[in-house]
Design a protein around this nucleic acid. Structure first.
Lengths: 252, 252
DNA sequence: CGGTGTCTTGAATACCATCAAGTCTTGTGG
DNA sequence: CCACAAGACTTGATGGTATTCAAGACACCG
């Protein structure tokens, strides 16, 4: 799947979206004018070729080992970066939320080792890797902004290492939920009173992210529901007792 | 512990070291003339303030939560980046070998969340973060070289995530050994026939890196020795049967 | 010489995986 | 619209891998 790059800065099919693009890397970098109908593109926005793309739920956006000359940024929807093993099991390396760049390393390395799968329907923008790179060279202050994404990405990866290496199933699942909660809250995607947010993950996603089996995830989740800590229904998660959830996850 | 930066490019106590600095990030970036007695510093070498430092085995080089205005690069010896948990257990996030920068994120984020512990006696150079950054801005081709370390670091982190999430104890330990073997071989630090390299890790290091207990590490290692796959003695590891080790680790 | 750190070994236990059966939902084609 | 298939989730029984607990051997060091 070679992505054809088309210059499409004028957002033709810009629907009214609840997500503000303000927290997006692309918006921050000034290379994307967003979905919000803002018709004043930043000064750089014409310098980076890009194309708006769609992927429907459960589709693979790209496979590992494909050479990719693009750097995708999620506009709406959830996706996952997944490593497949020869024995058929999978490990989700990171969840990708609206505003996330798939990985900052794609700027430098064209060959990813994991595949990207859409969890919900996903809209994303594919930026030209070469254009982004040359922009980074010409305008050093871009590096600062990009480095934020890099530091963030690495912190989450190291966090996951600790969770998988040294924490129990209950802790892992509680921390996964809390981590997603934090990230979504920063984007203004959490309703308060009660704390509630869209939660499109299937239990097998949670299993693949926490290194557990779907069966065991089910048991932990039913226990969390029974004890009135969280509730999940209709692809939506409600945190009923945040302090308790933090206690279980050993976060303060 | 605030590191005092001193300009010390002339290596006063340069001992004859077997390690060639050729594979070091600092050397590659042209900011360090190395230990090899090479008296022709690169054109950039005076632009970045640095200081040579030492740490003896089992000492902590720096603690988490300390503000750090330096970016250290290991010159000789082994170190580990460790996250401590409140219950006392530890997770080694990465092993640091000669030529490694402790973390590329330190360029952008002064506050690390893990501590660095010397495994052997360690010599390292502390480069000024501010100087490195401004050099990166002024000379874009530096970014290319630095990005290699960046991509490498992320690939190893993601690899560890997969190992901890979806692999058994045998696989994890085999892959840890193979990973260190690969990295050391690239630095010319492996003797061949038989394959042998310095291996200063205690079993508790292996345990903390693989998310296992020291007791279980011991059992796996004795089994690997019994079946003539590896041998460890006197802080040196010999790979007796590389194909078998790869089979156990599911790498080809 | 005792103390500390390292490693080994065995027994008991805990946690999570595997297996299996069944419910319920979702999607699809006749 | 219904029949059927596939996917998602639950629940209980059983089993395996790794942990915990404990004791002892050994080396190194002040």
């Amino acid at each position: 799947m070679n992505a054809q790059l088309e210059i499409s800065n004028t957002e033709a099919n810009a629907t009214k979206t609840p997500l503000s693009c303000i927290f997006c890397v692309g918006f921050d970098l000034g290379i994307c004018s967003g979905l919000s109908g803002d018709t004043t593109p930043g000064p750089q926005s014409l310098k980076v070729r890009q194309s708006a793309q769609m992927a429907t739920a459960r589709r693979i956006i790209w496979r590992s080992q494909d050479l990719q000359e693009i750097v995708p940024v999620i506009c709406s929807g959830w996706a996952a970066a997944i490593v497949m093993l020869s024995n058929g099991s999978r490990q989700i390396v990171s969840f990708l939320l609206p505003g996330d760049v798939i990985s900052t390393t794609l700027l430098f390395e064209a060959r990813p080792y994991c595949l990207i799968e859409a969890i919900t329907d996903v809209r994303y923008r594919a930026f030209s890797r070469a254009d982004l790179k040359s922009m980074l060279y010409r305008e050093p202050e871009m590096l600062d902004k990009f480095s934020k994404a890099w530091v963030d990405e690495k912190a989450r990866a190291d966090q996951l290492i600790v969770d998988l290496g040294r924490r129990t199933a209950n802790e892992r699942i509680a921390r996964l939920i809390l981590g997603l909660f934090d990230r979504l809250e920063k984007r203004g995607m959490v309703r308060s009173q009660p704390l509630e947010f869209e939660f499109p993950l299937r239990q097998h996603h949670i299993a693949d992210a926490t290194g557990l089996t779907p069966v065991h995830v089910s048991k932990v989740l039913t226990e969390l529901r029974r004890s009135q800590v969280i509730n999940i229904s209709e692809r939506s998660l409600t945190i009923l007792d945040l302090p308790a959830l933090r206690r279980i996850g050993h976060t303060r």
